[in-house]
Computed example of a mutant assay.
Amino acid sequence: MWIFHGDAARFASGVFASREEGLAWVAKHGLTGVLSEYPLGEGCYDAAVAQGRFQPSRPHHGTPSHVAGFSPGLDHVHIAG
């Protein structure tokens, strides 16, 4: 799934089934921000570890604050207005 987070926004403002749907919505509203791909059905940290994209190597890896702030690390698009 794809999530749009506008520049300086506190919360995400759109969730889409495809990159194309997200880009069309962003263009329709003339937005700036980042459209990012997220795994569906699991957290970003768990998906990255399971897929071998991240290996915990420091004591803070896997702690609540680390997991809560973990980026998806998948495809993304920066959109400038």
Rank of each mutant, 00 (worst) to 15 (best):
S36P: 00
G43L: 08
A17K: 15
G41L: 07
H66L: 09
F54R: 04
A24V: 02
D7E: 11
W25R: 02
R19I: 04
D46L: 01
G62E: 09
P64T: 06
G41Q: 06
R19K: 09
E21D: 15
V49Y: 14
P72Y: 10
E42D: 13
Y38A: 04
W2Q: 02
G14K: 12
E20L: 10
A24Y: 06
G69V: 02
V15C: 13
R10S: 14
V15P: 07
H60D: 08
V67H: 11
H29T: 04
L74I: 11
V49K: 09
H76C: 04
S57T: 00
G33D: 05
I3M: 04
S65C: 10
V67L: 13
A17M: 12
G73K: 01
H60Y: 07
H78W: 11
V49S: 12
P56H: 07
H29R: 00
S71I: 08
S71H: 04
G43Q: 09
P56K: 04
H66S: 10
A12P: 12
L35C: 00
A50G: 11
D75T: 14
E21F: 09
V67G: 12
E42N: 10
G62C: 06
S71W: 14
Y45I: 01
L35S: 03
V26Q: 01
H76K: 00
V77L: 04
H29F: 11
L74T: 09
H76I: 03
E21N: 13
H29P: 01
P59A: 15
Y38M: 08
A9Q: 15
Y38G: 03
S57R: 01
V67E: 11
T32E: 15
D7W: 00
V77D: 04
G14P: 12
G81H: 08
G14Y: 11
A47Y: 06
A48V: 03
G41P: 02
F4I: 02
G14F: 07
L23C: 12
F16H: 01
P72V: 09
G73A: 08
H76P: 03
F4G: 01
A48C: 05
H5K: 15
A47N: 03
D7I: 10
W2V: 01
A48H: 06
S18I: 11
E42M: 06
R58D: 15
F4N: 00
R53N: 13
S13I: 13
H5C: 12
D7M: 08
A27K: 06
R19E: 05
C44L: 03
H66T: 08
Q55E: 09
D75H: 15
D7V: 13
G81A: 10
A68R: 08
S36Q: 03
Y45G: 07
S18H: 09
V49Q: 07
W2I: 05
D7A: 06
A68P: 11
R10F: 12
V67T: 14
L23H: 10
G30F: 02
A27N: 09
G22T: 10
G22L: 05
F11L: 14
V67W: 11
D75C: 06
L40Y: 14
S71D: 07
F4R: 00
G43W: 07
G22N: 13
P59W: 15
V77A: 00
E20M: 04
R10N: 14
A47L: 05
Q55H: 01
Y45Q: 08
C44I: 03
G43H: 06
G62Q: 09
A27P: 12
